[in-house]
Amino acid sequence: MGPLIPNGVIPYEWNNILAILIGIAFGFVLESSGFSSSRKLAGVFYGYDFAVLKVFFTAAVVASIGLYYMDYLGYISVGELYVQPTYLWGAIIGGAVMGVGFVAAGFCPGTAITSVAIGKIDAMVYIVGIMIGVFIFSEFYTLFQPLYEGSYLGNITVVDYFGVNPYIFIFCLTIVALLAFFFTDMIRKKVKKVFY
């Protein structure tokens, strides 16, 4: 049956409409769970609040478990899902740069936009910063190009790359996630509480 749009269950024209609806829901959940606070987001790095880690790790685990169950039951086929292409070094360096921005400002691009929506001035400054970054990147694109397009690994997933059994991989991922939650919680209890 699924993926719904590529298989024509939902007409292709609905693509953008659905994207907007899902985006609104995502923004609502981000805001309602307090992710528009830069202190909460920066808490991951200072060790007083690991909500971000928990939320995104749980989301990944729940989604992968759910997907593979649906695949098993024939509601969706995992093989037909779109996989983002991997540019290894580009991803590593880009990830590091984004991490620095993350800890410095206390926003990731998604939460920054929800914060702009509730009128936070620091988030607006952050968005301007993103724009400047985009500008620099596109102006000096030729400089970054070898990094940006190099070490291309194709549209692969970890499961494809190492050839492991996806079910066992998901099980291990779940265990790792739960352990991470447990240990981060221990750290959180040790670190002095910050009220925000």
Partner: peptide
């Protein structure tokens, strides 16, 4: 085309 291992659905 990307070769998918047998796991890949249909």
């Amino acid at each position: 085309k990307k070769k998918m291992p047998t796991e890949g659905g249909c």
